[in-house]
């Protein structure tokens, strides 16, 4: 049943997000063309002022999309959970022969796939932008400079960073699910849901800094990889705890009035 749930989640995701991805890819291609055109003009500023303005606009749109897309994907996934489980659509979803763990699992897996795809698309588009661009041009533009530095990072560190971002992303998703679940069993009281979400974030930050302090006290201050691994483990443990808590709510406390 889990695979069937994922299939339907994926169909909905493709239907909703394919247009965003296509627009993003088109914007990246246009930005790349503009960079190439601007580079070909050299230092003759008057000749390429129009291209520069266009490049600034497209560059801004691309940056905006790059920052917003993972968050839009997260908000969409969280909203879909709420709609599927606790609105009128819940009359269909909650009567399927599927366990609560499968419901949550399917949405999380789809959220993860959506996040990874979004990151991959952003990464590929950024690689496309900086490929073949003069070192001098990159150094002139701090954004591209940063991007190039990012791609040149050690692969292991990059993967650790990526794993950390995935575990944080899953944690935020689960926190949203938990807040929605608690709001639903408390007659839709948003204040409770918001309180739980804020408390969760604050708690995560406190525990995260406590881990960092403990590690520092044990002499691993300069081993950033060890810190990242500890944070990943912490978030994974928190994720598993929240997963079981939401499953418990859906199984034993669901009240779709």
């Amino acid at each position: 049943m889990l695979t069937k749930l994922i299939k339907h989640e994926m169909l909905h995701w493709v239907r909703t997000f394919s247009i965003f991805y296509i627009i993003y890819a088109i914007v990246a291609v246009i930005t790349k063309i503009l960079i190439t055109v601007e580079m070909s003009y050299g230092d003759n500023v008057e000749e390429h002022i129009f291209t520069t303005i266009l490049l600034a606009i497209f560059g801004f749109v691309m940056m905006l999309f790059s920052i917003m897309m993972p968050w839009i994907s997260l908000a969409h996934n969280s909203n879909r959970f709420k709609k599927n489980m606790f609105s009128d659509e819940g009359y269909l979803t909650n009567t399927l022969p599927v366990t609560p763990a499968e419901h949550i699992g399917a949405k999380l897996i789809m959220g993860g796939i959506s996040y990874v795809c979004t990151c991959l698309l952003i990464f590929v588009c950024i690689l496309l932008l900086i490929a073949g661009v003069d070192q001098e041009y990159i150094e002139m533009n701090f954004v591209f400079d940063e991007l190039q530095d990012f791609t040149m990072q050690n692969f292991g560190e990059m993967m650790l960073g990526f794993l950390l971002s995935v575990s944080v992303f899953v944690g935020i998703l689960l926190l949203c699910y938990l807040a929605e679940g608690l709001a639903a069993i408390n007659g839709g009281k948003k204040a409770i849901a918001s309180g739980v979400a804020i408390l969760g974030v604050v708690l995560a930050m406190i525990i995260s800094s406590a881990i960092a302090t403990v590690l520092r006290a044990n002499g691993v201050e300069y081993d950033s990889n060890a810190r990242v691994i500890a944070q990943i483990i912490f978030y994974l443990v928190a994720d598993v705890g929240m997963f079981f808590l939401i499953s418990y709510i859906l199984k034993n406390k669901l009240n779709l009035e």
Binding site: D88, E89, G90, Y91, T95, P97, V98, T99, K251
Partner: peptide, 16 residues
């Protein structure tokens, strides 16, 4: 639970 839901066909009073 999931096993009984496979045997029950439910028509709610609202559009789902």
């Amino acid at each position: 639970g999931a096993e009984t839901k496979a045997m029950v066909s439910y028509l709610p009073e609202r559009s789902y």
